[in-house]
Amino acid sequence: MLKALKIELLKIKGSKVLFIATLFPIFSVLQGVMFLQYVKRSGESFEFWRMLFSGSTFFYATLLFPMIIILVFAIITRLEHINNGWNQVLTFPIKRKNVYLSKLLLGCIIIFLNLAVFSIGIIIAGLILGGDVNIPYNIILGKPILAFLSSLPIISFQFFLSIKFKHIGVPLGIGSALTLPVILVINSTKYWIVYPFAYPMIAITPNLVTLSEKQILKHYLMYGISGLIFIIVIGIGLLKFKNKDII
C-alpha cells in the first residue's frame, strides 16, 4: 500500500494538482481580508478572528472546496485514463485494491493539504493584520478538519465518477452541477441534511447563534451519514474496480 502511494506521489510531481490545491485557499483568505477591512471601515464592533474566518469561508466552502475535490480527483485519475495507463498500472505486481486505495488516499492528502493551506493562510493573514495572539485554534484549525470529514461523500462520489468515466467532462460537469445548488440548500434548516454537497459549508461555518438540540443532533447525524456514504460508495467502487476488465 505504502509502495503504491509512493508511486502515486511520484506521478503527481509534475502535475498541476498541487498548484491548484495551494492556490485556491489563498484566494479565499484574500477575500476574508477584504471582508474584514470592509467591516472595520463600517465602524461596527466585531470579533477579529471570527470575522476573518467567516469572510474567508463563505466562498471557499460553498464553491471552491467542493470544486477543488472535483478537480483533484479528475486530475489524479486522468493520469491513468490517458495513454492506456490503467493497463500498465494493473500489470504491475500490486494488488488492485492497493492501486484503488492509494489513489483515494492521495486525493485525500491533497484535499487535506488544501485545508491546511487555508487554515495557515488565515492565521498568517490575521497576524499580519494585527490580530491578537489568542488565536481561536478550535475554529481555525478545528472547523476545516470537520469540513474534511463532512466532505467524505463528495470525495467518494467524485472518486467513483472519475475512475468510471474516461472522459474528464463527466465528473467535472456532474460535480459542478451538484455544487451550484449549495448556496440555496444551506438556507434551508430542514433540507440541507439530504444534500451532502452542502455538508462542508455547514461543518465549517462558525456557530454565530446557539443551536437548538435538534440542530446539534442533525450536525452529528451529518458526520454519521458522511461516513456511511463514504464506506458504501468506496466499497461499491472498489468491487467494480476489482472486477473490471481493462483492455
Partner: peptide, 24 residues
C-alpha cells in the same frame, strides 16, 4: 458525453431553483 453535460447541468439548476421557490 456532450449531450449528458448540456442536459444535466440545466437539470441541476432546475431542481435547485425548484427547491428555492418551494421553500421561499
Amino acid at each position: 458525453f456532450i449531450w449528458l453535460i448540456v442536459t444535466i447541468i440545466p437539470l441541476g439548476t432546475m431542481v435547485a431553483m425548484f427547491l428555492d421557490m418551494y421553500l421561499r
